[in-house]
Design a protein around this nucleic acid. Structure first.
Length: 779
RNA sequence: GGGAGCAUAGCUCAGCUGGUUUAGAGCAUCUGCCUUACAAGCAGAGGGUCCGCGGUUCGAACCCGUGUGCUCCCA
């Protein structure tokens, strides 16, 4: 009856499971589309699809035939009420008030008259009949004399060894541990280590088995009550203490979960993991970040066999078929199993055969992914698998490096004779602001579609990518999405400005200032393109995005566009305009992988395009000219310093100044004179050979800038500023000088490093001279 | 218990051959601006015993040792 109910539930459950898959699988795909993931949507694949399913079964049969799959015992969670195994997720741990029983075991002293005991503490006295050893810490002085001796299990008088192992905590209980390999996971492992006997004293309904010798057929909790008076009567009970411990309960029936040994299916990993270890060791396959290589190597070198049977209702059912007597065959189908059985015994009927109730570990299907999505196993050597396999890059989470990545590599070599991919990019885990994992129970998962509605898909992508260096967890914070949204807004506004200029074009001829700006930005663009190229090859996506962000916002918008901006309602030179459009297009192409929607849109709004950005190939990168870049940097420094000086002297932005430049490189400054004037709101600029009285002095390298203004200047403020700068420069010069006067430094350091220090020294000295002159000028 | 990693500005993090760094970014903070693309903005500024201690080196945020605190994976 119960079986029928379960079967009914099972069928209903399967229906729901498929419904769930359709609904939520669909939602996930929908989210990916909304996020702008550039994927081949006609090729979605599912491990439960019929072809894929058959391949999983095929692999099981194949590995079994090769001797890589075997049956072996394993400790599982057992629900005595439902008489079923439970997965770890189905066990709920609760804190329970229990008793800790101190029970003494008589030691085999070799003499009947000489009595000695060892006392153990346990919360489960009903399991003592399954004891096959007592374990003590080897460093525990109290028990050193007992190592290698034997003790007798109370009531049944079985003789068991006393073994030393570091596993035992000296401080807990009495420092001596009873070892029951059949009923406790830790004891089981100890048992494996010392090859202890395993005595299963419990039936599948939680009653004592024949092996228990006493209380046979009685429930484990009744026995726990009844055994205490008997132990007391026999003189084995020392004391009872109150104790609080964690006990596992079945999620399904609320019964106390028992650990129980059960026959499970295993994959022997040694042989099939070897090529996979080698591939990563020899950099056939590269991990990003590389730190995961060590982790992988360590795991692969100490690899344990893989338990592939799971007590689950949904998945690929294990293709093992049983007869009533427990004999079994592994086969591709019931019919094939029937044939196999029939060849041994012609009387077997197909109704007598029962397929294994367990399902395969989900990774046992997933590990075939890289080739079976192209039907590389169900339809070997087809055109697609030949074209796509090995694939390029796997993007996944570091937490499944063993579950999935390692096993895909193994399966790749085992079934295709080749690696499945060349690079593996590990993303971080998204956590909330407090660093907690996203989870349903905490309710802290962001609603992706909601965020996309609020900020836009590009902003969400930007926010996540700017904050997620490879392999590091990412703390989800909406402020980075806001940054993304603001950035997108900036792009729109830049477009708006260009569109304004487009309408105001005119052929104005060449201009020194514009040429400077154009050359400089082209250099910046090429520099950044080259940097991005390297960063992308290294999978350092957030770094790449950061430098593009800064190129767009700072260099393009804040500097370049301002430098070429015509005066109020003035025409825009069409050649300059065209160059600017080209730059903007290139910026959009650089940004496109990060923010695909807005960049594609702007790209097409900038002009007639022959193709879409999402398929447009990158052009070769031109090399940058360093002296042009340096000239641009100098200009930026001068502008910032002059603006700072204006601010510090409380000049309103609207107040104009007269700027006097004292420099040895007049021609260099002539090329940027107008830009400079525009950027610091100077009504007039001129070159001078001597200091200008009653002006604000700004020193940059060897050059001096005098700001002449209508405003009455506060000499004390000016002086204070200069003195502050002087102090800084003096200290700096001092540290550089000390360094340079160190003979060992000059001898050992690379020549270019020494040269650089000399330049720093000279610059600082010149700067100090300038400041001192300016100070003299103030008095 | 085994393994891996992290500790840098108020917050989140870069800083990947030790020397263009008396340490950088974003956000936050402060000051001044409704400047004719953009206030979701512009122009500036302040802010750090690079976790503690010891060592290697001409030179350490970076390499080594050690202590402390935290995180993750596996059991």
């Amino acid at each position: 009856m119960e079986g029928k109910i379960w079967r009914y539930h099972f069928t209903t459950f399967l229906g729901y499971a498929w419904e769930w898959k359709e609904k939520y699988g669909g939602i996930i795909l929908q989210q990916l589309r909304k996020l702008g993931c550039s994927l081949d949507w006609d090729r979605t694949s599912f491990t439960m699809d019929p072809d894929y399913y058959q391949s999983v079964i095929k692999v099981f049969n194949d590995l079994y035939a090769k001797g890589h799959i075997y049956r072996g015992k394993r400790m599982i969670n057992w629900d005595v009420r439902a008489k079923t195994a439970l997965s770890d997720e189905e066990v709920i741990y609760k804190e329970v008030q229990s008793k800790l029983y101190y029970i003494r075991y008589r030691i085999d002293t070799g003499s009947e008259s000489q009595h000695e005991y060892i006392t153990v503490a346990t919360v489960r006295p009903e399991t003592i009949m399954g004891d096959t050893a007592i374990c003590v810490n080897p460093n525990d002085e109290r028990f050193k004399h007992l190592h290698g001796k034997f003790a007798y299990v109370p009531l049944i008088n079985r003789r068991i060894p006393i073994i030393p192992d570091e596993y035992v905590e000296m401080d807990f209980g009495t420092g001596a541990l009873k070892v029951t390999p059949a009923h406790d996971i830790n004891d089981y492992q100890l048992g494996q280590k010392y090859q202890l006997e395993i005595i299963d004293t419990m039936n599948d309904d939680g009653t004592m088995s024949d092996a228990a010798q006493i209380f046979i057929g009685e429930d484990r909790f009744d026995v726990r009550k009844k055994i205490i008076p008997e132990l007391e009567a026999a003189g084995n009970l020392v004391k009872i203490e109150d104790y609080t411990n964690q006990v596992g309960f079945s999620e399904r029936t609320d019964a106390v979960v028992e650990s129980r040994l059960s026959l499970q299916w295993w994959v022997s990993m040694k042989a099939i993991s070897e090529p996979a270890l080698k591939a990563v060791n020899d950099d056939e396959i590269n991990f990003h970040p590389a730190k995961f290589k060590n982790l992988y190597r360590h795991w692969m070198e100490n690899i344990k066999d893989w338990c592939i049977s799971r007590q689950l209702w949904w998945g690929h059912r294990i293709p093992a078929y049983y007869l009533e007597d427990g004999s079994f065959e592994v086969a591709h189908s019931l019919e094939e199993a029937f044939e196999k059985f029939k060849s041994q015994n012609s009387k077997i009927k197909i109704e007598d055969i029962k397929q294994d109730e367990d399902c395969l570990d989900t990774w046992f299907s997933s590990w075939l992914w890289p080739f079976e999505v192209f039907k590389g196993l169900s339809n070997p050597d087809n055109a697609e698998v030949k074209y796509y396999y090995p694939t390029n890059t796997l993007v996944t989470a570091p937490e499944i490096i063993f579950f999935w990545v390692a096993r895909m590599i193994m399966a790749g070599y085992e079934y295709q004779g080749k690696k499945p991919f060349s690079d593996v990019y590990f993303t971080g885990i998204v956590r909330d602001k407090q660093g907690r994992k996203m989870s349903k129970s905490l309710g802290n998962s962001p609603d992706l579609l909601g965020l996309i509605d609020q900020y836009g898909a590009d902003a969400v992508r930007f926010g996540i990518m700017i904050a997620s260096p490879a392999g590091n967890d990412l703390l989800f914070d909406e402020s980075s999405l806001e940054q993304g949204r603001n950035f997108n807004n900036k792009l729109w506004n830049a477009l708006k400005l260009l569109k304004m200029w487009e309408a105001r074009q005119s052929d104005l001829g060449t201009d020194l200032q514009n040429d400077f700006a154009i050359n400089w930005f082209e250099n910046r663009l090429n520099t950044v393109k080259a940097e991005v190229e390297i960063l992308m090859q290294q999978f350092r996506l957030s770094e790449a995005l950061k430098i593009i962000y800064s190129l767009v916002w700072d260099d393009f918008c804040s500097w370049y566009l301002e430098w070429i901006k015509p005066g109020f309602e003035q025409p825009m030179d069409s050649a300059v305009y065209q160059r600017t459009v080209t730059y903007f297009e290139e910026l959009m192409q650089l940004l496109h992988p990060f923010v695909p929607f807005i960049t594609e849109e702007i790209y097409h709004l900038l002009g007639e395009q022959t193709e879409d950005l999402c398929v447009k190939q990158n052009q070769p990168i031109n090399s940058a000219n360093e002296s042009i870049t340096a000239a641009g940097e100098l200009l930026k420094n001068v502008i910032s310093a002059l603006r700072d000086a204006r601010n510090k002297n409380q000049l309103k932005p609207k107040e104009t100044i007269k700027l006097h430049i004292q420099t040895e490189n007049v021609s260099e400054y002539q090329a940027i004179e107008k830009i400079l004037a525009k950027q610091v709101n100077a009504e007039k600029t001129s070159f001078t050979t001597e200091a200008i009285a009653n002006s604000i002095v700004v020193a940059i390298e060897k050059d001096k800038f005098f700001i002449e203004t209508e405003k009455v200047l506060d000499a004390t403020t000016l002086k204070a500023e200069l003195l502050k700068d002087l102090e800084y420069q003096t200290k700096f010069l001092q540290s550089v000088t000390i360094k340079l006067s160190n003979e060992r430094f000059v001898q050992n350091a690379k020549p270019e490093v020494v040269e650089l220090e000399r330049k720093k020294q000279a610059d600082a000295a010149a700067r100090i001279k300038t400041i001192e002159e300016s100070l003299g000028n103030l008095n």
